[in-house]
Simulated scan of single mutants.
Amino acid sequence: MDSASFFTRRKVVFLVASLCCLLWGSAYPAIKNGYALFNIAAGDIATKLVFAGWRFLFAGMVLLAIAAIGKKTLRLDLRTMGQVSLLGLTQTSLQYVFFYTGLAYATGVKSSIMNATGTFFSVLLAHWIYQNDRLSFNKALGCIVGFAGVMVVNFSAGLLTFDFTLLGEGSIVMAAFVLSAASIYGKRVSQHVDSVVLTGYQLAIGGVALLLTGFAAGGTLTGFTVKSTALLAYLVILSSAAFSLWTILLKYNRVSMVTVFNFMIPVFGTVLSALFLDEKILEWKNVAALGLVCLGIWLVTKEEKPALAAA
């Protein structure tokens, strides 16, 4: 790959990945506002799963409709459908069981920063799975610095207590790990399935699983108004656009080259949560955490050109 093609490719990855991260960052205040608009109590996990289920089922249906209009084949063989189903049950269902639970017990600002751990998990997992995606000194240092940022955001203002709960912050970290592992598996599946079709099926299957789980646990979604319905529609569009674009990026690029941009999610999530949820952003620990996370981005992406060009 020549120098011009290399830098053009990086610019495209940067722009598309940034858009995805902006959309995902906006999900933090959107979901928390959704809890309020649909009158979902903090401890009502079942209804949260129903809320998530409708979001992903509709998002999947939108993508499958787009694929059908584009005359892309929706028929998959039994083995491939099994792989896509597994992806949907992990990347969508399992991840969002943890994510929606954690978001109910942690602030949007803190959750967005904690979710950055997914980038480190992706870089570490890719090292063991892909021979052309090994852990370098810069990547290792970036992971350490980024994890330090995640630790900082969990300290109290006086540095005397460590504010971390399994149900809140712990669930967010688990969601990040599940997404990282599932994304690597999804990269493999995407090599022989159209990205839009793959994303559509996995979102729809994951959404159905969330709905069934939520309904079985006694959940029900009420309180539909123009405002709450518009917010749900935004979440549907957000999911269909971000997940399909991200799947395409992973299909044609190295895992570490793409997933490192997940570090931008806490930046967008923190700012948008501060704007729309009136949460504090200028606490020293939030500023320090964001600074360390951004430094982690720079370190992990600071690779020599030949290594990236070999993607």
Rank of each mutant, 00 (worst) to 15 (best):
T222D: 03
L15W: 09
C21D: 08
L166G: 12
D77C: 07
S136Y: 01
L87H: 08
N154M: 09
F177G: 03
K48A: 15
A204Q: 12
Q202S: 08
A106Q: 09
L141Q: 01
T107H: 02
G219E: 12
L103D: 07
G219P: 10
V255R: 04
I248P: 00
G296P: 03
G118A: 10
L203N: 15
A106G: 03
I184R: 06
V293A: 09
I237V: 15
F155T: 04
T220G: 12
R10F: 04
T222A: 11
L290I: 15
F215P: 09
Y105C: 06
Y35I: 06
Q202L: 09
V260D: 05
K48D: 06
F177L: 15
D77G: 07
D194I: 03
V196S: 03
L160G: 15
G43H: 12
Q131H: 06
K32Y: 03
T90W: 00
T225E: 12
T107G: 14
F121C: 09
A204W: 12
L282W: 13
I40C: 11
S195L: 01
Q131I: 09
L210Q: 12
V150F: 02
S85V: 04
S18N: 10
V293I: 15
M257P: 00
H192K: 12
L89C: 07
A311F: 05
C20L: 05
F162Q: 01
N33Q: 13
C20S: 07
W284Y: 08
K280T: 14
A116P: 01
S93D: 08
L203S: 14
F261S: 09
Y96S: 10
V109D: 08
F56W: 14
L167P: 00
L290F: 05
A116G: 15
Y100M: 14
I113H: 09
G146F: 07
